[in-house]
């Protein structure tokens, strides 16, 4: 799969503080790339560097196989829609008037504006003043502004910030739809469950460093879920010297591999301990993340 964004040793230092440290990002084409990390982990700074809004201290950025430089930036930005930090929008203008500003800035056609508004389902509210929009509508207007240029890459910084669950679901559905149309979406969040059901590829940032990059499945491979052995006689199992924690269903074993699981089950069976079920605990992305960061994350 070809990459839309690659970075090599991308670093940003503010005075003596390193906000982004030697980042090697790889964002494949046509995916939703979930960019995760606690507040202050360097997500926004990274995204600003990707858009040429902030100069890297060192390292390089390649977008659409072209190096991002001051000379190439304007041309590259034509293909990139973005929403960084807060959703843009002049409160004293209507949604449509705001879109007209974007249209005039980028020399877009009326149809592009209409399509962008329709995509985020704001057509019915386009004549309302933006100051009267709900937060969700402002976020959607921000996405419409980013979409108006019909980008190949969409970079969205915390687009669900402050939204209620319905609003989050709406944005999530929208981004998945956009990805299905071939747009590469890079979306950041400090909340795992927001990203969990939409991202194809994840990049996890902690303290400015990329601690994981890959698919959801690859992320789960980094962590071994606990094993639950359902038995009506946990005492008999513990008497065999098995290290486990008694739970309601029976026993819970942590950090146990497939081979170790087979051995434990064999010993229980030989000892005649009744086993009703053996299963792994279903892990959330958050559990995996916490395992990955040694529970040092702030998510």
């Amino acid at each position: 799969m070809s990459a839309v964004i690659t970075t090599h040793g991308l670093t940003k230092t503010f005075r003596n503080q390193t906000a982004v440290d030697s980042l090697d990002l790889y964002v494949p084409q046509g995916v939703v790339y979930g960019f995760l990390g606690p507040n202050g982990s360097g997500k926004s700074t990274t995204m600003k560097m990707l858009l040429g809004l902030t100069r890297p201290t060192s390292g390089g950025i390649t977008l659409f196989d072209r190096p991002l430089t001051p000379a190439s930036r304007t041309d590259l930005l034509r293909s990139i829609g973005s929403m960084i930090e807060a959703p843009p929008g002049y409160g004293h203008l209507t949604g449509l008037e705001n879109m007209r500003i974007v249209q005039h800035m980028l020399d877009l056609a009326d149809t592009q504006i209409d399509h962008a508004l329709a995509t985020v389902r704001l057509t019915a509210h386009r004549d309302k003043l933006v100051r009267n929009y709900s937060l969700g509508m402002k976020q959607r207007l921000g996405v419409a502004m980013a979409l108006a240029r019909e980008p190949a890459l969409l970079v969205l910084d915390e687009p669900t910030n402050g939204l209620d669950p319905a609003g989050i679901e709406e944005i999530r559905t929208l981004l998945v739809e956009l990805a299905s149309e071939g747009i590469t979406v890079m979306v950041s969040s400090h909340l795992l469950d927001e990203i969990d059901r939409m991202a194809d590829v994840l990049g996890i940032l902690s303290g400015g460093k990329l601690i994981f990059q890959g698919t959801r499945g690859e992320l789960f491979e980094h962590s071994t879920p606990d094993l639950i052995i359902e038995t009506p006689d946990p005492g008999a199992a513990l008497a065999l010297g098995i290290t486990a924690t008694p739970v309601l269903e029976g026993l819970r074993l942590s950090g146990i591999t497939k081979e170790q699981t087979a051995e434990v089950v064999r010993r229980l069976a030989v000892a005649g301990v009744p086993i009703h079920e053996v299963r792994r605990v279903r892990q959330s992305l958050e559990d995996v993340f916490m395992d990955l960061t040694g529970r040092g994350g702030l998510l």
């Binding site: 858009l51 930005l77 409160g91």
Partner: peptide, 17 residues
């Protein structure tokens, strides 16, 4: 002030202004 309130600086910068 509208640029501060409406995140206009960033919006414009991403359009080359």
């Amino acid at each position: 002030d509208i640029e501060h309130a409406g995140a206009g600086w960033t919006l414009a910068a991403t359009a080359g202004y």
